Amino acid sequence: MPRGSELNAFVEASLEPVIFRGAGKDLPIVQAARKSASAASQLLLSFHSGRPVTVYRADRETRGRFHYTPALDGFNFSGSREDLPAVLDELQRGAQQAIYVGSTDLDLFFPGIREANDPGVAGAEGANGAPVVASLWMGNRTITAAHYDHSNNCALCAAGRRRFTLFPPDQIANLYPGPLEPTPGGQVVTMVDFAAPDLDRFPGFPDAMKAAVSGVLEPGDVIVYPAMWWHQVEALGDFNILLNWWWNAVPDYVDTPQTTLLHALLSLRQRPAHERKAWAAIFDYYAFADPAEARDHLPDHIRGPLGAVDAALARRLRAQVTRKLQR
């Protein structure tokens, strides 16, 4: 698979998910998992910092789908801080509940493990980029409902098997997103139960499935996909480990568009339809079209934020936005 900064060029060229079969087969964590769940557990413990991990538990009736309650008055799972050795032992013995240890920071909880098991993501952030974020995901047979992430993703199936079902960003309406908050894991998730979709409530879901791509990862397989692709991840074994790396090919002073979305809901959604249509054209012109369209007819000295934005200008823009929000 492409390595380091080559990943960005690859993602921009493909703009769709790609599975690299066996790309991580020689990594220590994969080699240990191929021996046994016990060997994989021992490797994790050899790097463990001793910090308790966050464990989410759900009854088997949920089929391991961590989501909302049927009445939508809460979540169908609980969370707690637990000692890692006990969790690993429970998984190896065959847990009675669905167990999910999600998004556990490798550097904080397993210092040194990312360097020893990197399939080639180091350096993907490029110059001035925010550091790559590496995490561990572990558990038994669980389902993470389809959602999108703001970053590009590279995921290594280390133990067990995982099915990824992915959708291009333009399928958002056919996936029927849930509330912006609260969310089961920090990101908006689909309300559709893929195993038993209610097509009366979600009639567009079959169209989403027509656009979907899906694949099962075996130990050592690596999947890479662009930011903003919706993805449901199903762990298919009683003991599984996945490592992932998130990165963005933008300078670290670039803010998250999620903040912009929240303010758009405050400032745009209640305006008359003709005004919303006008603002859509303005956003297209300034934010989504080729940047040259809005800037090239202006001389350099008056382009301001329409020109190149550096860290200093980003700070001034952020301060200007903050002042305007303080009302």
Rank of each mutant, 00 (worst) to 15 (best):
H274Q: 11
V55A: 09
L43Y: 04
Q320K: 15
L266T: 15
V309D: 06
I223F: 06
G120W: 07
R141H: 11
P85V: 12
P179K: 02
F167H: 06
V321R: 15
A122D: 10
R295Q: 15
H297L: 14
A273W: 11
S267Y: 13
D59S: 14
D198N: 10
D105Y: 12
A37N: 15
A116F: 06
F20Y: 14
G204L: 07
G94D: 04
I99A: 06
N240Q: 14
S41H: 04
K25G: 13
F47Q: 02
A134W: 03
G74W: 04
I19E: 05
K324M: 13
G22C: 09
K324I: 12
D105Q: 10
Q97K: 11
L268H: 06
R163W: 08
L180E: 10
R163D: 10
P197L: 07
M209Y: 01
V250W: 12
P111L: 09
A86F: 15
R93P: 07
A289R: 14
E125W: 04
G126C: 09
H67N: 15
P219C: 06
G112L: 01
A32E: 05
R63I: 06
D290N: 12
F205A: 05
A314N: 01
Y176C: 11
L166S: 10
M138E: 10
Q326I: 11
R34T: 12
I282H: 12
A13V: 04
F10V: 03
D105R: 11
Y100D: 08
H147S: 01
T322C: 15
V213L: 09
D118G: 00
L166E: 07
F77Y: 08
K25T: 14
A145D: 03
T142N: 05
L306P: 00
L313G: 09
D198G: 04
Y68V: 09
L91P: 08
N153R: 03
R163E: 13
M209P: 00
E90N: 11
H231D: 02
A314I: 06
I241M: 08
V213S: 11
A249N: 13
V53S: 05
D296E: 13
D118A: 09
Q326S: 14
G129A: 07
T62E: 08
F77Q: 03
V55G: 01
L43D: 01
M228C: 10
A40K: 01
L325C: 09
P179G: 02
P272D: 15
H147I: 00
G102Q: 13
Y100A: 08
P28G: 07
H231L: 00
R295G: 08
Q92K: 12
G4H: 01
A319D: 11
C154T: 13
Y253P: 01
Q187I: 08
S5G: 13
K210A: 13
D290Y: 00
P182L: 02
T142H: 02
P131S: 04
V11Y: 03
D107Q: 15
I241K: 07
L27H: 04
G22N: 01
V222W: 00
D118V: 08
